[in-house]
Design a protein around this nucleic acid. Structure first.
Lengths: 127, 127
DNA sequence: GAAAGTAGTTTCTTTAAGGAAACTAATACC
DNA sequence: GGTATTAGTTTCCTTAAAGAAACTACTTTC
C-alpha cells in the first residue's frame, strides 16, 4: 500500500491539477501566448503579418504553433481567394476566453517587476 | 532591424508582451505549477514530502525547480535543526500572489474540458 | 556495524524544442 | 523569362529539458 497520509492525489484537487496540466499543455512552448496576444490585439492577421509581428519566430515554428492552436479550437484559419492567396487567422470564441488568463499573467509580470525594483534586490536579473 | 509597419512593438503593449514573457519564463517547465499548487494547498512541505506529492518528479528535477523558485523569491527554504535534519519549503508573500493566475488557469482548464465535451464536435462552427 | 531516513548532487543518456536555410507551388508584375 | 509575394514544408542541426540510477553526507534506530 502507498502512503495516503499526505498525498492530495485522492481528493478533488486532482481535477484541479489535471486542469492546470491541460491548460499548460495547450499553451506550452515559447510562442503561443505571443501569437494569441497578437491576435487579441489585431483581430485578424495573415501568416506573413504574424511572422513579422511575433518577433523572432520562424516560418516553421509559426506554422506548427498555428496548427496546434487550430487543432485545439483556439484559432480559426480562413483561406481567402484573393489573387496571391492569403490566409487569415483569428481567435475563436473559445480562444477569446483565454483573455482573463493572459490578463492575469501580464498583470502579475508587471507587478513582479515593480516589486523587484522597489525592493532593490539588485542581484536579480529578469532582463 | 525592426519593421514598424504593423508591429505592435513600439507601443505600450511591448510592456505587456514583456510581462507575459517574464511570467512564463519564471513559471516555465513541467513542474513549477504543480509544486506551487502543492505548497498553496499544504502551506509547508519538506523535500521528501514534495517528492511524494508531486507525482512523477525525480529528486534532481525537484531540487532544480525549488532552487529556481527560491531564486525568484517565490518560495522560502528553511533548514530546521531537527536531528535527521529536515528542510521546509513554503511560499513567500510574493509566491502567494500567483494564486489568481493559477485559479484562472485551473478554471479555464475545467471549462475548456466541458466545452469540448458538450460540443461533441460539429467541428467547424457557427459558434 | 548494518539499515534506513533525511536532503540533496553527480553522471550519463534520451527526448523534446527550437532555429536557419533551402525548397515547393501558385499567381502576379514587368 | 525573371523577380517578387503569398503560405507554407522539408531537411538538417543545435540546444535545452527531463529522467534514471548511483552516490555523498549526516544521524538515528536496530
Amino acid at each position: 500500500m502507498k502512503k495516503e497520509a499526505l498525498s492530495s492525489s485522492s481528493s478533488g484537487c486532482k481535477t484541479r491539477i489535471l486542469a492546470i496540466k491541460d491548460t499548460m499543455e495547450i499553451l506550452a512552448g515559447k510562442w503561443k501566448f505571443h501569437i494569441i496576444g497578437s491576435l487579441m490585439l489585431f483581430e485578424k492577421l495573415r501568416f506573413m503579418e504574424l511572422l513579422r509581428e511575433v518577433d523572432g519566430i520562424g516560418a516553421k515554428m509559426l506554422s506548427k504553433e498555428l496548427q496546434d492552436l487550430e487543432m485545439n479550437h483556439l484559432i480559426r484559419r480562413t483561406v481567402l481567394n484573393t489573387k496571391p492567396l492569403t490566409v487569415e487567422y483569428e481567435l475563436t470564441d473559445c480562444g477569446r476566453t483565454l483573455g482573463p488568463i493572459i490578463d492575469e499573467i501580464a498583470k502579475w509580470g508587471i507587478t513582479y517587476r515593480n516589486t523587484l525594483y522597489h525592493k532593490s534586490e539588485a542581484s536579480e536579473s529578469v532582463v
